[in-house]
Design a protein around this nucleic acid. Structure first.
Length: 269
DNA sequence: AGCTCATGGCGAG
DNA sequence: TCGCCCTGAGCTG
């Protein structure tokens, strides 16, 4: 289940397992069959991630472009690989490992030029070393759109999804409905830096944790929480439950077809 | 068995 | 703003 940290982790995992030697490439589901046949037996040379886009580079000028969307998953295992089920869009296998891709929004063979075009339309990614938040600030500081919507716009910031959006706004006490242009420079700088730190930890742990140590259940004298998406969070999917800091009921609302979560007391205009 | 929902994004209108 | 695409878990019966 993918926000940007998942994709960067997958890029590293593919590199570790497959880079540098020939890979058997197949598409059991047949939707990627022609391209898989072209790649079969070639060497995986490089991997890359920008926001929620994953790129697998093979010998020659082509890349596999993968976008998991809301449902897509990549699962790893060690050989021998079991018979693929009929939902496996792409399978990579070498002597020791296999990877199965299911349910992606995108799995396509693209050229270097097409890859460049994808980078060009994405905003800065807090997980890419060559980026800073300046480009994002230029758009945010001139926009009447709410900061909640701007954070989810991949042309503004690449890699932030519904969990990081909700959590970073909570951590900075910002009302999700505040217009981008009402954000101060120092607020944005803090948000950008925090996204980088949170998402790097997300890559390391392969899950999203956003609760500061002093607010963890044990530090607050409460029983440990179990969050069904697998991380410790303040507001995400906690509608109508008590805020961990102030006990106010967490609110939820629809915003651009996604669920928004926030604490109306901790996050004020 | 069938429904709902989910960490996304696109194009039509 | 809506409908649509992709899969699977967790319900309800």
């Amino acid at each position: 289940m993918p926000e940007g940290h998942t994709i960067h982790r997958l890029a590293a995992d593919h590199r570790a397992r497959f880079a540098g030697s020939p890979v058997r490439v197949s598409s059991p589901q047949r939707k990627f069959a022609e391209s898989a046949a072209r790649l079969d037996g070639r060497v995986l040379t490089d991997t890359d991630a920008h926001g929620k886009h994953l790129f697998l580079g093979f010998d020659g000028p082509e890349w596999v472009h993968i976008h998991l969307g809301l449902f897509g998953k990549l699962g790893f295992g060690t050989t021998p690989a079991p018979p693929p089920t009929d939902t496996v869009r792409l399978r990579l296998v070498n002597a020791s490992d296999y990877a199965d891709l299911r349910g992606p929004t995108t799995c396509a063979l693209i050229t270097e030029d097409e890859k460049r075009a994808i980078h060009a339309r994405l905003g800065p990614d807090p997980l890419r070393e060559d980026e800073d938040g300046e480009r994002a600030w230029l758009r945010i500081s001139r926009s009447r759109v709410t900061v909640a919507a701007l954070l989810m716009d991949q042309k503004v910031v690449a890699g932030v999804g519904n969990v990081y959006r909700a959590e970073v706004l909570f951590r900075h006490g910002i009302d999700p409905y505040r217009p981008g242009k009402d954000l101060t420079r120092s607020e944005w700088d803090a948000i950008w830096a925090d996204l980088g730190a949170l998402m790097r930890e997300g890559v390391r742990n392969n899950r999203i944790d956003t609760v500061r140590p002093e607010h963890l259940p044990e530090a607050m004298g409460r029983p440990a929480r179990v969050d069904d998406h697998g991380g410790e969070v303040y507001v995400y999917r906690r509608a109508r439950q008590a805020c961990h800091i102030c006990a106010t009921e967490i609110r939820t609302a629809d915003l651009a077809a996604r669920n928004l979560f926030w604490c109306p007391a901790c996050q004020r205009r």
